[in-house]
Write a protein that binds this DNA or RNA. Structure first.
Lengths: 231, 231
DNA sequence: GTATATTTTAATGCATACATAAATAAATGC
DNA sequence: GCATTTATTTATGTATGCATTAAAATATAC
């Protein structure tokens, strides 16, 4: 997830309107409440959020920097949609950066206890699959990937990956129920954990790379097959 | 470089104060005019740029998203400094992403003409080295790396790499004259071009990875050796 | 002299006002 | 009826005002 709030040390205990606007708008965008392609005037958003235009403007500038929307001179802000080509771009980047994370975790010789959250997430994925609960599976899968990146101990890496995950969240939600049962993913995760335990950085990278490339191909072919040209 | 200005299609022909503030501040930060660690009140920056606080505020939020400064509740904005550990984080990311770029260029089977700008930049690097002109060498080197990323045809990849290059630009300028003569870099570039021509993605990745890892090690050891704990 | 409480100062966060210019509508010419 | 010009509307970009509250300064207690 995106937790811009708890980054530093001297946080103002009461979050500013700008922060609230940013997190509310982000939530509404990734949850499809503000659908891709739709347009909003600053005044409209200000009314929706019950604040003045100033913090709304500031928030939209931040979200524009994160690639979620585009501020267009006199036409309001437009919620950006994602095409299969965009997905390709984003998944290339995510693949690469998560592989870096996997490599780093293996290299730093994480002990068995450190890797426990990964095992736990994988366990939840398996249980969710048995119940045929795809939402729970997706949540656990996301936890796994997030934990992997957190363990790699590179704040900037985490920030980039969070940003781009936000951009593809809608598309993932869309394919969740039309994709085949993700048995392979769970196996991949187990294999990765083993490689991490052995400290085999090359193997970890290889396993995760294949895992992510498969996910990318599946996602893009699903979007194409179902005619989702813009999500 | 960072050319946020000419991104889209419907640009307002006269750039806004906010844009001007953002590009001016970015320039002043990467050129060390606003040195790392220094603090400025919104009012001061507004006076420096001869505009009101509003566009300055908006610009600082954008630059904060790009990791160049930190807006601190009542203490003004602080120009962020980079420690060797930060350099490690950033170079890890840049290494990974530039290797992706190299791989992609090789995969897409770029013809000899497409690769010409790379050859041209390498040529300029060599000529600069013979004249012992380090500034020119660095500029050509940067062109090479930028061209590689542009050729990979992934806008988001370009944007991330630009952002993080901005963060390390000061540090690179600082080590330019204390580093050994960069003969090896030129050879690496020639070797990479060959791999790209052959369409050998794995080799391109390998060569560029080693090139970047060497650059990282050199940079960090130079910073440490010369006691630059914060740049 | 140090620590705590109180007062003062001032920087920010936000709302609002307004000029500018884009977009739309109306008017005019043909 | 269509094209071009003019007038009108309106969303934004920017400046400004003000309340809030953190920080600094001062005063008080010990």
């Amino acid at each position: 997830m995106h937790e811009r709030a708890s980054a530093g040390q001297t946080e103002p205990r009461t979050q500013s309107q700008t922060q609230r606007a940013a997190s509310e708008l982000r939530r509404m965008i990734v949850s499809n409440e503000l659908p891709p392609g739709s347009n909003y005037l600053e005044t409209e958003l200000a009314q929706m959020l019950d604040m003045s235009r100033t913090p709304v403007r500031e928030a939209t500038l931040m979200l524009e920097a994160q690639g979620l929307l585009k501020v267009r001179p006199r036409r309001g802000v437009q919620i950006l949609s994602i095409s299969p080509d965009d997905m390709e771009e984003i998944y290339q980047i995510l693949t690469e950066l998560e592989c870096l994370a996997a490599e780093r975790v293996a290299e730093m010789g994480a002990d068995s206890k450190t890797l426990e959250p990964l095992r736990e997430a994988t366990q939840r994925m398996e249980e969710a699959l048995e119940r045929d609960d795809r939402e729970a599976w997706a949540a656990a899968d996301e936890d796994f990937h997030e934990t992997l990146v957190v363990l790699s101990d590179n704040r900037r890496l985490k920030a980039i990956i969070d940003t781009y995950n936000d951009q593809v969240r809608r598309a993932r939600a869309l394919t969740l129920y039309i994709r085949p049962v993700p048995n392979k993913s769970n196996d991949d995760h187990r294999a990765l954990i083993q490689a991490l335990e052995k400290g085999d950085a090359l193997l970890a990278r290889k396993i995760h790379r294949e895992h992510r490339i498969a996910a990318k191909s599946l996602m893009i072919s699903l979007l194409r097959k179902h005619g989702f040209h813009q999500v």
